[in-house]
Design a protein around this nucleic acid. Structure first.
Length: 435
RNA sequence: GGAGGAUUACCCAAGUGGCUUAAGGGAACGGUCUUGAAAACCGUCAGGCGGGUUCUGCUCGCGCGUGGGUUCAAAUCCCACAUCCUCCUCCA
């Protein structure tokens, strides 16, 4: 959430910044107008309350001395009515203001490439030449099916489109990948967490998914009354329970920066992406992801963003997967982010890079929504900055390994870093059928 | 899912409508004493958010789990919800 005071004081600047994210100037005019009315009403109400408090003290004193106070009581009755009216108006204005504010994205950083969509993203650096083959590489979904380690048909039968079974060496590979990630992240100083995978609406609002992106997630309903949603949503990313761990907390300054990592399933409705990436592991309703989250002081957050990206890059480098780093444009970056770098891994069969990690500095945007604060040496409270990044998306990593490490005979060479995690297995060969 | 009980500061806890500007104790912090420490004694210790402002100060409002309500006036009375505890039921 943006700070209304910042918008109020720097209206022209705010309009210009948010225009690059597709927000119309009229929205901000409307916002500051409501804010002005609200503050006016607060001022009036509080004057009356001060008056009422004085009168109440006088009434109490009179009563104690057994004197009559009925005139003062009658006078206060009308004041009380006015206060009630003003307070109702204030809460209506406050909720209008909140509704508008909750739907405004974060201010983009000055360094963000300006543009409405991903075509304005800028490549920052590239690691390793893209993989070449002396045969035509297969897509990971074909490799997975031929090896009988990924089963799309039975997942479609059991759950529907965009679900998959991992089997045998496939399941082992998935497990090897996430255990490798968790171990590496822990070595890099992140504390491992196993969070809840269902969270309440306050948490979804705290990290910025609600109210704007309700249609992107799965919310649990009451079985006795399916029209009634329960206050529980399947997490679309571990970022939600990790960041909300700190919600409404005051952190000791010396604890910062805090680094946490978690493996979790991620559930996404993929509303609006019909027809895109319909095959393979790229776009699933349910996938596993290892997430990294940082909570830090404002002055550290840009440096911490660099560290976060390097932590994610380190994983791809150890796996030997070619990738590049892309700075997202103002229009492509996520709602909560001031600056986002995507890591895109090379997918040979598709002959292009695909997103495998998204590393963002959310500045104080989530901290203000979620009230994540710290007390520093000066004894004062400050909003923290929050950062998040995938480290990494597990299914997409498996897809990249299958495609980049495939051999002409259809087997997969296991990346060296994963061999210990695969119980010494160096090559994935065709599984025997279960049925 | 059912029945009871609870929720006040870092911890324990008093407080059943107006002299509560929320008692008291412990912890913590500062000081006196001491070579140093302990003890004793003295002091500080109810957070924070919001409004106004001539702006690092002053002032007003709100703050006793959360949100409503009653009242001239609510920690205190009423309603709803959340969380925790005990018991029953169910359960990996």
């Amino acid at each position: 959430m943006l700070d209304i005071k910042v918008i109020r004081k720097n209206l022209a600047w705010a309009k210009e910044k948010l225009a690059t994210r597709g927000i119309k100037a009229a929205k901000l005019d409307q916002l500051v107008e409501i804010d002005a009315k609200r503050r006016q009403a607060i001022s009036e109400s509080e004057q009356l309350k001060a008056q009422r408090n004085d009168a109440s003290a006088a009434i109490a004193a009179a009563k104690r001395q057994k004197q009559d106070a009925s005139a003062a009581i009658a006078a206060m009755r009308t004041v009380g009515g006015k206060i009630k009216q003003l307070d109702a108006a204030i809460s209506e204005l406050a909720s209008q203001q909140q509704d508008l504010l909750l739907r405004l994205p974060n201010f983009p950083a000055d360094s963000d490439p300006i543009g409405p969509d991903e075509s304005y993203n800028e490549e920052v650096r590239k690691w390793h030449e893209t993989t070449t083959f002396n045969f035509k590489p297969l897509a990971h979904w074909d490799l997975g099916t031929k090896l009988d380690i990924l089963d799309w048909d039975r997942a479609a039968k059991v759950s529907g489109a965009r679900f998959v079974y991992y089997k045998g060496a496939g399941a082992l590979l998935e497990r090897a990948v996430f255990n490798f990630f968790l171990d590496e992240n822990t070595k890099a100083g992140y504390t491992e967490i196993i969070p809840p995978y269902l969270v309440n609406d306050h948490s979804m609002q705290g990290t910025g998914q609600f109210p704007k992106f309700r249609e992107d997630v799965y919310t649990i309903v009451d079985n006795d009354d399916p029209d009634k949603p329960l206050d529980l949503t399947l997490i679309p990313t571990a970022e939600v329970p990790l960041v909300n761990y700190f919600r409404n907390e005051i952190i000791h300054g010396e604890k910062l920066p805090i680094n946490v990592t978690a493996l979790s399933p991620a559930f996404r409705s993929e509303a609006g992406s019909a027809g895109r990436d319909t095959r393979g592991l790229i776009r699933m309703h349910e996938f596993r992801k290892v997430e990294m989250v940082k909570v830090c002081r404002p002055e550290e957050s840009w440096n911490e963003l660099d560290k976060l990206i390097h932590n994610a890059e380190h994983l791809l480098q150890k796996l030997g997967l070619p990738y590049h780093v892309v700075a997202l444009s103002t229009g492509d970056a996520s709602f909560t982010s001031a600056k986002t770098f995507d890591l895109e891994v090379w997918m040979p069969a598709q002959d292009k890079y695909r997103e495998i990690s998204s590393c963002s500095n959310c500045t104080d945007f989530q901290a203000r929504r979620a009230q994540i604060r710290y007390r520093d040496d000066d004894g004062k409270l400050h909003l923290a900055h929050t950062l998040n990044g995938s480290g990494l998306a597990v299914g997409r990593t498996v897809a990249a390994i299958l495609e980049n490490y495939q051999n002409q005979d259809g087997t997969i060479t296991v990346p060296e870093a994963l061999v210990p995690y695969m119980n010494g297995m160096t090559k994935i060969v065709k599984e025997t059928s279960l049925i």
